[in-house]
Structure formats: C-alpha cells, structure tokens
Simulated scan of single mutants.
Amino acid sequence: MRNKRNGFYNWIGSLLVFIGIGAVAAGIGLVSEPNGSAIGMSVKLLEDSPFQSFWFPGIILFLINGLGSFFGAFLSFKRHELSGIVTIVLGIAMIIWISAQVYWMGLISWMQPVYLIFGIIEIIFGWAVRKEK
C-alpha cells in the first residue's frame, strides 16, 4: 500500500501547487486592483454580495487557497502525517469558496465547476492518505 499512498501524496502536492499558483496570482491581482480590473473582473459582479470591492476576497484567496495550498503541497511532498487532514480542509475551503462565488456572482466561468471538482478531488485524496495511516 505504501506505493499507492506515495502516488496520492504526489498527486496532492502537484494539484495544490497548481491551485496555489493561480490563487496567489489572482489574490495579488485582486488586492492590488480591488476593482477587479487586474484580472478582468468588474465590481458589478459583487452587487449581490456583502463586499464593495475585491480587496477582502483577494486577501482570503491569497492566504487560504494560495499560501495554504503551498503549505499543503509542502506537507504532501514531505509525506507529513498532517498532509491528509490539511488537504481535506483545503478541499472544503475550495468548495466553500466556489459555492460562495456562484451564490453571490452566479456561474460566470468554466473555471468555477473545474475548481469545485478540484476541491472534491482534494477531499478524496486527502481522505485516501488519512485512511492509509
């Protein structure tokens, strides 16, 4: 079973690096231009949300989905015992993030369902790593 678990660690780490790169870039874009223009969005998308600008969502995106994913990837590549639980938590955070986006802004991009699926995959792979312990 060790080889199977190592495969999960590698998949988790790679997925989290991919998510982290996009989230850090988008988070920086939203914080630096809170009107959303840096990443091709408009504050009009926030009309039905509790936010007046993308600044706070950008901070959350940067910290949780960005830096959090890099931290999770680090743990995964190191085969750390907390890797599974951190990956599950990040998957739940991704699902909440995407669900909130769709609730407040609507389905505006093909990336939303893709990242929702990534969140589900994170939970499944994190669970698989935890289960093997």
Rank of each mutant, 00 (worst) to 15 (best):
G58V: 08
G84Y: 01
P113Q: 05
N6H: 14
A93C: 03
I85D: 09
N65G: 12
I21Y: 06
V31E: 06
W55R: 15
V24G: 05
V24F: 10
K4C: 02
L46A: 05
Y103T: 15
S42P: 10
V114A: 02
N6C: 15
R130E: 13
I123T: 09
L30W: 13
R2T: 15
F51R: 09
K131F: 06
Y115T: 12
L82Y: 12
N65W: 10
Q112I: 03
I85A: 05
G84N: 09
V129R: 00
K133R: 13
L30G: 03
I123M: 00
F118Q: 01
R5F: 01
K78A: 12
K44G: 11
G84H: 07
I98Q: 08
F18L: 11
E122Y: 02
F54H: 07
S37W: 07
E132F: 13
W104L: 01
N6A: 14
I39Y: 08
S49Q: 06
V17Q: 06
L116T: 01
G91N: 01
G36E: 08
I120A: 08
I12D: 12
N35Q: 00
G66H: 09
F125G: 06
S83T: 03
P57L: 02
S76R: 02
I96F: 07
I96T: 09
P57Q: 03
D48R: 14
L61D: 11
K131L: 00
I64R: 04
F18A: 03
V129D: 05
E122G: 07
I88L: 10
N6I: 14
I19D: 12
N65F: 05
G36T: 08
Q101W: 14
F56Q: 04
L75E: 01
V31Q: 11
I108W: 14
N3I: 14
M1Q: 10
F8C: 04
S14V: 15
S76V: 01
L75V: 04
F8N: 08
E47K: 10
I85Y: 07
K133F: 02
A93D: 11
T87G: 06
H80E: 04
I96R: 02
I117T: 08
P50K: 08
S109R: 05
G20T: 06
F70V: 11
I117W: 10
G106T: 10
F77M: 05
R79A: 15
G84L: 09
V24L: 05
Y115N: 15
